[in-house]
């Protein structure tokens, strides 16, 4: 029982991170990024290559891949998203365009991964030593994943709510029309937010690859769960993303443990539907 709670929190922690990244991209840059999950999977494979070919530990890989994720997303924003933002007459049009373009990007990233790594399940063994936590045995890599998720999630929250930089980002999220009146460069904020999202995706990729097997085509499922967590938590709410992510992780682990592992996605959808009916604006969303 406690074992499932801990596993659920591990999974939930990573979902919370994914959702935080997505909610920042969507809330500030106004881009619904359907290729988010595939960026995560790309980071998983990159960690795998660094670990198995260059013997670089995943923790060190973070130092390489997080900036890489940031840079990659910055380039994507400059090259692909910027022209779309510039041409969109209103927010709705940008939403549709960004959904379509990132849907295309999803297939490109997936195609590249399939060529290099094939369609099989991949994993590596890192820190697979059992650790005793409150009487239950947990794998060391999972424990490390929780610690990393917590650290990174918390530091992002601190940056967003306690620094001037974070305040600028939140101002753009709150009111993109009015932010320029206060001397805020919205384009720069959007760019930064999109890149931070990419860095988060890379982080999650590294963390997840430590304890889970992954395939080149698994990105869709990640994106979907992240989107659901974002909606559950309320669009643009970072705290909501954390709570909803943990909740979803717990639900999924318990369904897998007590009902059937094949029905986890159905359970996730069930929670999503139920919440849409009860609270259409999310747990922490404003009406």
């Amino acid at each position: 029982m406690l074992e499932h709670v801990i596993n659920g929190l591990v999974l939930g922690g990573t979902y919370a991170l994914v959702a935080m990244g997505l909610t920042i991209q969507y809330g500030i840059a106004r881009i619904m990024n359907l290729s988010f999950g595939d960026t995560i999977i790309a980071a998983c494979f990159a960690t795998y290559v660094l670990f198995s070919s260059f013997a670089i530990s995943p923790v060190l890989a973070l130092l390489i891949l997080v900036p890489a994720g940031y840079a990659f997303s910055l380039v994507i924003y400059r090259v692909i998203m910027r022209p779309l933002v510039a041409r969109a007459p209103d927010e709705g049009a940008l939403e549709v365009d960004s959904i379509l373009v990132t849907f295309g990007l999803l297939f490109v990233i997936q195609g590249v991964l399939l060529i290099f790594f094939g369609g099989g399940y991949t994993s590596y063994s890192f820190l697979n030593t059992p650790v005793n936590v409150l009487g239950t045995v947990v794998a060391g890599n999972r424990l490390l994943a929780v610690v990393l998720s917590l650290l990174i999630g918390l530091s992002l929250i601190v940056i967003l709510y306690r620094t001037r930089w974070g305040m600028i980002l939140r101002a753009v999220a709150l009111s993109p029309q009015n932010a320029p009146l206060f001397g805020i460069d919205t384009d720069r904020a959007a760019r930064t937010a999109f890149a931070i999202g990419g860095a988060m995706a890379a982080t999650v990729g590294v963390v997840v690859s430590m304890f889970q097997t992954f395939t080149a085509t698994a990105g869709v499922v990640f994106t979907m769960k992240a989107l659901i967590v974002v909606i559950l938590g309320g669009k643009g709410s970072v705290l909501g993303a954390v709570v909803a992510g943990l909740l979803l992780g717990l639900v999924e682990t318990f369904v897998a443990a007590y009902i059937d592992p094949g029905l986890t996605l159905a359970a996730v959808y069930g929670v999503f539907l139920l919440l849409l009916l009860v609270r259409p604006n999310g747990i922490f969303g404003k009406a």
Partner: peptide, 26 residues
Amino acid sequence: TLRLAGVYFVIFTFGLAELVRQVVSW
């Protein structure tokens, strides 16, 4: 989903195929 904003609909349909596939397989 259609009572709500369009974005819910997109998200829902995005994973629907995967959901149906998993349920049918199960």
